[in-house]
């Protein structure tokens, strides 16, 4: 059954694209700062430092807005994988990505307003948005106000572990973002999920009578 459902509200789409733009700026300027003497330094150091600060503050504001909006609208529930059968469904998704998609099989998960993400997406986004992002945001804030860092830690400058954590977690978020761009092409067509993220409308292909793939075992 061909379906057309309104999946993503405007605030979520606006947040998503603003988040994407900020991650691009932060990743580019962050790499320019950390790898300052390499080909990755595409933005001059002083400018990169200023831009990273500005985009960083914007990211803090945006992240707080995201958490609040998620709490208010109940969208946070989407990020929670629901037992039982999380592993089983995740394996099914992994199997689909590895083999099924090559054979032209149907995606085992069809998004619905109450279960937008498949279990793997939910787990991954939960970790990225509620574990990695808070680490990057908090360490970034300490980086911006270094007087809040402990003066010394384990015989090193107090900012040292903060800086390393910021870099490593930031790099992980960026790598995930790159993967996310590719995974976005794994919809019914290569561009269908991008369209959904722009318009909010998902053009689905649910078997007749189903409202959520999760309910079918």
């Amino acid at each position: 059954m061909k379906t057309r459902i309104y999946l993503l509200p405007l605030w979520l789409r606006l947040w998503h694209w603003a988040n994407a733009a900020l991650i691009i700026v932060l990743a580019t300027t962050g790499a320019s700062l950390h790898f300052s003497d390499s080909a990755f330094a595409v933005v001059p150091f002083a400018r990169a430092a200023r831009l990273h600060d500005i985009a960083g503050v914007a990211m803090v504001v945006l992240y707080i807005a995201f958490v609040i909006a998620n709490a208010v609208t109940g969208n946070w529930w989407q990020y929670v994988p629901k037992p039982p059968g999380i592993m089983e469904r995740s394996l099914r998704v992994m199997r689909y990505y590895a083999f099924g998609i090559m054979r032209g099989e149907r995606d085992p998960h069809e998004p619905t307003p109450d279960t937008n993400f498949n279990d793997m997406q939910a787990s991954a986004y939960l970790v990225v948005m509620y574990v990695a992002m808070p680490i990057v945001v908090i360490t970034g804030l300490i980086f911006m106000f270094p007087q809040t860092a402990p003066d010394r830690l384990f015989g090193f400058d107090g900012l040292f572990p903060v800086a390393v954590l910021h870099y490593v977690t930031g790099a992980a978020v960026v790598l995930f973002a790159i993967l996310h761009v590719y995974l976005g092409t794994l919809g019914h067509t290569a561009t269908s999920q991008y369209k959904t993220m722009i318009t909010g409308w998902h053009e689905g292909d649910l078997p007749s009578g189903r409202t959520s793939s999760r309910r079918v075992r």
């Binding site: 700062l33 150091f45 015989g155 400058d157 870099y167 490593v168 790159i178």
Partner: peptide, 28 residues
């Protein structure tokens, strides 16, 4: 430098940088 300051661009661990590079390469 680390006892006094973390100097961005100078305070680097080649092993961490390599690990990030390898992860990025494998991903791509």
């Amino acid at each position: 430098f680390l006892s006094t300051s973390y100097v961005i661009g100078a305070s680097r661990n080649p092993w961490i940088d390599r690990a990030v590079g390898v992860a990025a390469a494998l991903l791509i």
